[in-house]
């Protein structure tokens, strides 16, 4: 019992656990659509692009989150627009926009008179540094994203599977696509402090890809992915506490191990299924 409760004697650890649980669950829930729509690249894309927002916010002396949110949402909408109007694939649109925005961030930072601020916490995350205000923002935005996902549930599912027929039947596929991109941008922003720019993509992709290995039902995949994300985040944080390792990396490593276990289970199941026929 002590082993489980020990970390909670520190208030910053309590906040870290809440943040990890929320971020792990949310990323892996929306990640189900990321994996099924083959958008694995997007987490990386929007997270890197938000770096430009963080730099601008730093130079202007405004809140980092404000800068990151504005740039991430604009990048998400830009990716959707270029994809729809520019006759390029979504992957290419992401590639063009995120490198552009990231380069802008580096450019601005290199011209800054002095940049001794520690931006590494945005690259690799610093979940132990989540303040009370950060936590309120994380919980607030997570609530917005969760409610939106619930409202869009069927439209997201139909357009993920068969966008053309969904659109013909009267579902506004363009709206659904843009909405998903904006919700992704918000999810990525609130995950930055927990796992950082470099590792957020893993939280979006790995739990959902893990669930995909072992189920052929969409609802099962959704719940399983959310559970795997939540468990990896909380267990990963515990592990990092006792191993004195970086929390974001520990969480992602745990999810990666889960993926390979699920892959082995999925393979052996398929083998025994085909063997019995």
């Amino acid at each position: 019992m002590d082993f489980l409760l020990a970390p909670f004697q520190y208030e910053y650890m309590q906040r870290a656990f809440v943040a990890a649980l929320v971020v792990g669950t949310l990323c892996s829930t929306i990640g189900t659509y990321v994996v099924l729509r083959k958008l694995s690249f997007i987490g990386d894309g929007i997270a890197h692009a938000s770096f430009a927002g963080i730099v601008v916010a730093y130079l202007r002396g405004i809140d980092y989150y404000a800068g990151a949110i504005v740039v991430a949402v604009l990048t998400a909408l830009g990716i959707g627009f270029v994809n729809r109007r520019g006759k390029v694939s979504l992957d290419t649109a992401i590639g063009v926009l995120f490198t552009g925005a990231f380069a802008l961030g580096v450019f601005l930072m290199s011209r800054a008179p002095r940049y001794n601020v520690d931006l590494s916490s945005f690259l690799f995350g610093n979940i132990l540094g989540v303040s009370r205000g950060d936590l309120v923002l994380i919980l607030g935005l997570a609530a917005v994203v969760t409610v939106s996902l619930a409202f869009l549930y069927r439209a997201l599912l139909y357009t993920s599977f068969d966008p053309v027929v969904a659109e013909a039947s009267g579902i506004n596929a363009a709206f659904v696509d843009y909405a998903l991109l904006v919700l992704l941008a918000l999810t990525i922003i609130i995950s930055l402090e927990a796992v950082g720019i470099v590792l957020v993509a893993a939280l979006l992709v790995t739990p959902a890809a893990t669930a995909f290995q072992v189920t052929r039902r969409f609802t099962t995949m959704l719940w399983l992915s959310a559970t795997i994300g939540a468990v990896c985040a909380v267990v990963g944080l515990y592990a990092s506490y006792y191993l004195q390792a970086a929390s974001g990396a520990t969480i992602v490593l745990l999810a990666t191990i889960a993926f390979f276990i699920a892959m082995a289970i999925g393979r052996s199941r398929r083998r025994s299924a085909s063997g019995s026929r």
Partner: peptide, 10 residues
Amino acid sequence: MGRYPRLRPL
């Protein structure tokens, strides 16, 4: 999925 377009959210 054929029923989805006519269903209200939630």
